[in-house]
């Protein structure tokens, strides 16, 4: 803690080139993506170059932070700043998902019934969408994307729910092991968590293949396909990131970066993992079951 009588002990880094690298990476990624979508030939390669620069930036930036941390340059106040940074970052992620959940609820609660003639929508329904009966799932009055079937909740999605919930238990066991100094138990249970994350992703990929190949359920299947794939897709992306983060943390544990009292890197990733877990529970409930 910084105290009035103590010397200046807050670590303020003196300049860093990584943010500049990150800016170039982000700019290249975004310009590349925009040109790719506009079918400009160099867009796609530029996008991948930008992503590579961003990965290089993360490697270097996190590396700097890890080295400084191992040298003992951080005090508990810096630790609190990192914790707040991670907490508010996760809050921003929650709000990002909230936008898509909001779209799902709005479509189900309002736009579909209105298209079906509820409330003030009677004449619109009569003149524009005559014969459209509101229901969920739906791909709208024009049946955009053609007839489709949905993924039953009580098959693979239930399995994936159990997998993610189990991974929440294993990472907690790993955390307790870390705090108790049980190194082998830590590595085993953290490794199990990575494995469960990978299995989840495998089943999710299987589910997508099934949807596209056999159920005709695609991103273009009207508002059902849109909300289904955007919600589960962004969630899957976050599980992917979380799994990579867990794997990195596994190697850092193996290298002995963490002590019983100082392992914020581990905790940050654990928080993130619980966040993707909770989002999945929301998805399972509102996308698959209801």
């Amino acid at each position: 803690m910084a105290t009035a009588q103590g010397k200046h002990i807050y670590y303020v880094p003196h300049g860093s080139k990584w943010p500049a690298v990150g800016t170039i990476g982000l700019f290249t990624t975004m310009i590349g993506a925009a040109n790719w979508l506009n079918e400009v030939s160099w867009g796609k390669p530029a996008f991948y170059v930008g992503v590579a620069i961003l990965l290089f930036m993360m490697w270097g930036w996190f590396g700097d932070v890890i080295r400084e941390s191992l040298k003992g340059m951080y005090n508990s106040q810096v630790d609190v700043s990192f914790r707040m940074g991670m907490m508010w970052f996760i809050f921003s992620e929650i709000m990002f998902f909230a936008a898509f959940f909001g779209a799902l609820f709005y479509a189900r609660m309002y736009s579909i019934p209105w298209l079906g003639g509820e409330g003030d929508g009677a004449l619109t329904n009569f003149y524009l969408h005559s014969g459209y009966a509101p229901a969920w799932p739906t791909n709208g009055p024009d049946a955009i994307g053609g007839a489709f079937q949905t993924i039953p909740a009580w098959g693979v999605p239930l399995l994936n729910t159990l997998i993610l919930l189990t991974s929440g238990v294993t990472i907690t066991v790993a955390h307790h092991a870390l705090r108790a100094g049980h190194r082998t138990q830590l590595l085993v249970f953290l490794g199990l968590t990575v494995l469960l994350g990978a299995i989840f992703l495998f089943y999710q990929a299987e589910e997508y293949i099934e949807a596209y190949q056999h159920l005709n359920l695609t991103l273009g299947s009207g508002v059902y396909g849109s909300t289904f794939f955007m919600l589960t897709g962004f969630h899957g992306l976050h599980v992917t990131l979380g799994t990579i983060m867990l794997a990195v943390i596994w190697f850092r544990c193996a290298k002995g970066h963490f002590t019983k009292d100082n392992h914020f890197g581990f905790e940050a990733v654990a928080w993130y993992w619980h966040f993707v877990d909770v989002v999945w529970l929301g998805l399972f409930m509102f996308v698959y079951v209801l």
Partner: peptide
């Protein structure tokens, strides 16, 4: 760019959303 229907009434979405 990817054929979703969030804001397309024909697909069950809504521009007002």
């Amino acid at each position: 760019f990817f054929g979703t229907s969030f804001f397309n009434a024909a697909g069950g979405g809504d521009p007002v959303m």
